[in-house]
Amino acid sequence: MNSSAGAPDLICELDSVQGIVDALTSVRWKRHQDAVVELSEHGMVIIVEETSCVQAKVYLQRELFVKYDYGAQGRPRFGVSLGLFVDCLNTFSFPGRSTILEIRYPGPDMQLMLRAVDSPDACIYAEIRTRIPETISWDYNFEPAGSTPLTFTVKSAALKEAIDDLEWPGSSIQIKLQPVPPSVIFRGEGHGDLQIDFNSYANTDLLIAFTCDRPISHRYKYKFLRATTSNIPSSVIKDNRGSKLTIGRGGMLKVQHLVSVAKPTVPHTHVDSAGYQQPSRIAYIEFFVKPEVEEEDTADDS
């Protein structure tokens, strides 16, 4: 029913619900999280944050949708419970079957409307209540720390493993980048010490890229560092992807993952689909983690 006046801000269609579920799950680090969804002509951005510690963004570009009709002025935003959104999307994802899911915003009562028509005689629908969004803090603005970016790309699986291993030493993890010898060091101190080194020469298969022109080191709270990898979808590990970590001005850590949003490969019966190769479709995930305030060496990188 289109009882709301005028055309909706957005009507879009998805053919890979599971990919979107994966992408959104990767920023779901605790049970109850509020997300802000921002719509634009370029796609959809889902933003989640933990007050002044960590912020995550999922970019679903319009190329990921089979249809994307954007009719709004400006950039409409609404708040939604992330958990509910993911659980709800998950109901639309059937293993081994591809369903087209239509997402529409707003509904008559500002809801987010979802609908999948499986066959002419079966229909699954959902209406999720949205909220007026909380303001997103803008202090996650990421700025490069200098003229040369301080960045490295590491296999997502190795990154996750390293961060998982750092659980026992304690609550604070130091990340150190040094040009000579080119390496990344994760160090946890607490109940005991644990240091994990990624050496650019020795671990070329793990540390895929590395740029750093001066030593830098910052500490991050373990629990927020962990949030960046705790729910990495299995498809990322399976696809053997890399995650990019960059340290910006003030020690702000940016972690980027790529999540595949490919349509599930179902054997087609259509002749015309034979030979059609689906272009790789990726959702971008970004985490911004603020460093712990350090007394002695805050001026390390300025």
Partner: peptide, 9 residues
Amino acid sequence: LIALGAEFR
């Protein structure tokens, strides 16, 4: 917060 349903006809 949500209405989620399925109709089979």
